[in-house]
Simulated assay, not measured.
Amino acid sequence: MSVLMTLRVTGDPTAVEKLAADDGALFQGVVADGTGRGLISHHFYGSETEVLVVDEWDDEASFQAFFERSGPQIEQVMAAAGVTTQPTIEFWRPLEVGDDVG
Score class of each variant (00 low, 15 high):
102 G>V: 13
73 Q>K: 04
97 V>W: 11
35 T>S: 07
62 S>C: 11
12 D>R: 11
25 A>Y: 06
41 S>W: 09
18 K>Q: 15
92 W>E: 07
55 D>T: 14
66 F>I: 03
76 Q>P: 00
88 T>L: 12
36 G>M: 10
79 A>F: 03
96 E>A: 15
72 P>M: 02
4 L>G: 08
12 D>A: 11
13 P>K: 10
82 G>R: 08
50 E>G: 11
12 D>M: 08
80 A>R: 05
102 G>Q: 14
26 L>F: 02
29 G>I: 01
27 F>V: 07
82 G>W: 04
78 M>F: 07
71 G>M: 02
62 S>F: 01
99 D>G: 08
28 Q>G: 10
39 L>G: 08
55 D>L: 06
39 L>S: 10
96 E>C: 15
77 V>H: 04
71 G>F: 01
37 R>A: 12
8 R>E: 09
97 V>I: 15
83 V>T: 04
26 L>K: 03
99 D>P: 01
65 A>F: 03
19 L>W: 08
18 K>M: 11
77 V>W: 02
3 V>N: 00
88 T>K: 15
70 S>E: 04
76 Q>G: 02
67 F>I: 05
79 A>V: 07
91 F>R: 02
26 L>T: 09
56 E>V: 08
30 V>H: 03
13 P>F: 14
102 G>Y: 12
10 T>W: 01
11 G>Y: 02
39 L>C: 14
43 H>W: 11
59 D>V: 05
41 S>H: 13
22 D>L: 13
9 V>C: 09
50 E>R: 10
30 V>A: 05
63 F>C: 02
54 V>Y: 11
93 R>D: 06
59 D>E: 13
89 I>F: 05
95 L>S: 12
94 P>L: 15
9 V>Q: 06
57 W>M: 07
66 F>G: 01
98 G>P: 05
94 P>E: 15
55 D>V: 10
102 G>K: 14
58 D>T: 12
45 Y>L: 15
67 F>N: 07
41 S>G: 14
87 P>E: 04
31 V>C: 00
